[in-house]
Design a protein around this nucleic acid. Sequence first.
DNA 1: CTGAAAGCGCTTACAG
DNA 2: CTGAAAGCGCTTACAG
Lengths: 353, 353
Amino acid sequence: MDGGVISKKPSVTSSQVADHAGVSQSAVSRTFTPGASISPKTRAKVLAAAKELGYRPNAIARSLITSRSRIIAVVMAYLENLFYPDVLEELGRRLSAENYHVLLFTGFKDRDSDPVFDQLMQYRVDGIILASTSLSSELSEECTAAGIPVVLFNRYVPNLKVTAICCDNVAGGRVVAEYLHDTAHVRPAYVGGEHDATTNLDRARGFTGRLQELGVALHAHEAGGAFSYTAGYSAADRLVRQSVRPDSIFFASDVMAVGGVDAIRAANLRVPDDISVIGFDDVPMASWPSYELTTVRQPITQMVDETAKILDFDKSAIKKPFRKILFMNGMLVERKTVMDRRRRLSLARPAQA
Amino acid sequence: MDGGVISKKPSVTSSQVADHAGVSQSAVSRTFTPGASISPKTRAKVLAAAKELGYRPNAIARSLITSRSRIIAVVMAYLENLFYPDVLEELGRRLSAENYHVLLFTGFKDRDSDPVFDQLMQYRVDGIILASTSLSSELSEECTAAGIPVVLFNRYVPNLKVTAICCDNVAGGRVVAEYLHDTAHVRPAYVGGEHDATTNLDRARGFTGRLQELGVALHAHEAGGAFSYTAGYSAADRLVRQSVRPDSIFFASDVMAVGGVDAIRAANLRVPDDISVIGFDDVPMASWPSYELTTVRQPITQMVDETAKILDFDKSAIKKPFRKILFMNGMLVERKTVMDRRRRLSLARPAQA
DNA sequence: CTGAAAGCGCTTACAG
DNA sequence: CTGAAAGCGCTTACAG
């Protein structure tokens, strides 16, 4: 056993470096502060001493005095929803490029972020990103009062005075309706996700609204109840057992749609020949050969960019619109789960003639 | 536009609370330090004042003086590998229960964690978890010198003096070999993941080693090159086109195995009737109805528990074994992708007789 | 450009 | 149990 008591050793401080370099502690600090006034000569001496001693500025001490932690809290409730790991990676990339860091809160079983709020505020974070969760209005107002920007990611709360960044889910739903109409589908169904999520509500609203405008009757509206594979599978299973089946199903998310495709196939029906399927998100799985899912791609990179803009109060102290809801456009990605039923008609007509 | 310049307002300090409560600043501090010596009466006064002013202790200031940040750095390279979001959630749950917090580093494209090391050290983290990445030996020794525990999660480096926590991948591979042998498979193949990952190497070694002991020839060893769906798909596709096909394939991970199942089906073959398939990890997808993948489950909860034990230097300052490699047992989860070929034999025999 | 000094918001011996 | 005081490791006016 080469064990031992584990205890943190005190690390090298700027004063130690200063002594070693024969300069003041201020000079050391200035060397590590971009833009600070320091001569190349002193700087070189400090750098040499720092390297020799293995000095690294203490971000904690710096935070205390600047009251800027360069830490952004990210609260993410549902990591299992495939879409979120993607978001998290993009967020990590983007924030670290701006020299921010991510304090992650996940794994707690709650609908809102209130339980972790105290924790995150104690670290004096510079911003808060809530992905698929929200905050009570008292708490969000506390943030506003404290001057800490909050961004709801992929969710919004109409009456809450908090900035939200979402894909335009209503528009996404409308695009799907149009696409299904254009390809001559006449019995479209919708399968919903988590019931009161704005993502679910808006996709449904856009879809059914546009369908109605186009004079297409909604064949069925199944409540999935969650954005999960299982929810998609069961809902599709129910639809498939109806005496009159839908000719197309729009699922509230890709993972649900994948479940749906599997259920349809399990019933010995073909996608898209018997039933067309469309999802939402464009997670990596959507492009797997066995699914080749037609879906609406969420503009993750742009969404993260906008998030970064809201949080980045360093570069520009200009007036920024606070508390707005940003809807960004998704993009229809055509793959192989929707059949153009006009083709079938045009094939059928000559035979009939 | 109800915008405005976003700037952090100074928050309430312990001195302000002290003034308001008519006690010393020390008393305020003690009120918020579990176990500190404080009378119920003073405590109540402080608590009332704190509530009224909206006081929250400043974790940054506390960290500076205690030289304990209660922050654990988690470096995770491949979030898209489905297994890791699971790990991250479990880690989040476990660490927050111990009042630790996760500083997440992800989204950088690199094999080792050296590039983010500086960042994480500046925050004076209390521990480092490296999932699917490693560290150069200089850096890991720097951690040892600084008394900061490092844990490699799901990966180990034989010559590196760093504690590692892994599933026993060799044992897992052996179990798979035995299972395939017991079920009368005679042409087993292995499809590898990321080439030099210990997970890949050990699973291969356990599998082929045990096969050899059992007198079963390895039918084929395909290099997948990555733990991805696509890698699994292509490898299976190649195997399926051979003049003599394998009767079973062990994939280095579930995501790969799922790709493999799809490739096999795309070739109009059946799983498990024509080819049995086994994966590794037991990610949520493995139990989806369209796959029902037989696999080796990684003991995530136990692995996270052990990780927490290594990092938790608060509770017990006893001697802890440092720098050990912990191999934890996986569990074979039987689902529907392996066919018991003895049955086929016993059915075949009477017909032949 | 440089250094001495104040101070960020806490914890923790120390003395009472 | 309580308070005054030192000090954690920095940044940043201030004066030179």
